[in-house]
Amino acid sequence: MDAAELVEGVRAGKRRPVARLLSLVEENHPVAVEALRELHDATGGAHVVGVTGSPGTGKSTLTDRLIEHYRREGKRVGVIAVDPSSPFSGGAILGDRIRMQSRSTDPGVFIRSVGTRGALGGLSASTADAVKVLDASGCDVVIVETVGVGQAEVDVVRLADTVCVVLVPNLGDDVQAVKAGVMEIADVFVVNKADLDGSDKVHAEVEASMSLGHPDEDDFWWPPIVRTVADRATGVPELADAVAEHRAWAERTGHWHTRRRQRLRRQVRDLLHRAVERFAFSGQDPRDDFAPLFEAAQHGESAPQDVAARILDAFKRS
């Protein structure tokens, strides 16, 4: 399929073209760049909801229940489920679908599993593009599930309009870790596994952490804390309400707009980064034209700064 066929298929919400374009996006294929440009006017309609937290907290189960909830409201739902790839082989076992079976043959649901492939730098950019594909295909809600462990994952979930951080009882502060970086980006806290002892404690800890160091602004959003038992779908309507309220608040106060402006800037930055990189490199190796520059620096005849400056000169002239 060429870019035009992909674009037409995605606009019509056809599954194969959507799936193909998602693959090309992951490869950072030039056809994907072209198709995404064409699709831009069809994007922006979806509410992008991030779901993040430590492994095993119930993110996939919750996502499944949210899918069910939104489908009952007649909304079309897309999901990007990111799982870590093995740093050794680059391979991965992507198992999030195991817990997302409620609507496994529903044409109003599109779920895609993504491995991090050790290419964490590019992950947030390619996930942002994948979200756009689902958005353009007509999804009203796009859920992005990530394991909340490091900066790269935080960057991924930042592209969401509303970020849900999932906590559970008895995980221990160190693992709960999710730590500062992730706690700070929460728009909604979910205390899942509320059927287990200790959920009061987690709830109280989150509340305590919030009362510290937050600005005293009128338009400040206090992230609500929602208790759920994902297994039994308990608390899911309340979670969906909290997500909708966050959106309403963000739209009312201009935060929606601000966040999307930041997202756009980041996207342009990523595009520039990739363009320059593609100009200079082919995979891991410098492009042939530039190989001698690298050689020279290798032999101490010039500095890396000289190499970069020469490549940028060539880029400007290209």
């Binding site: 790839s85 082989s89 992507l94 198992g95 679908r97 195991i98 496994s104 043959t105």
Partner: peptide, 20 residues
Amino acid sequence: ALRDAGFEVIYTGLRQTPQQ
């Protein structure tokens, strides 16, 4: 084994219908 060979494996769990 497929993961260790560098493939991405999507696993969907037990008792899947052909449609699923």
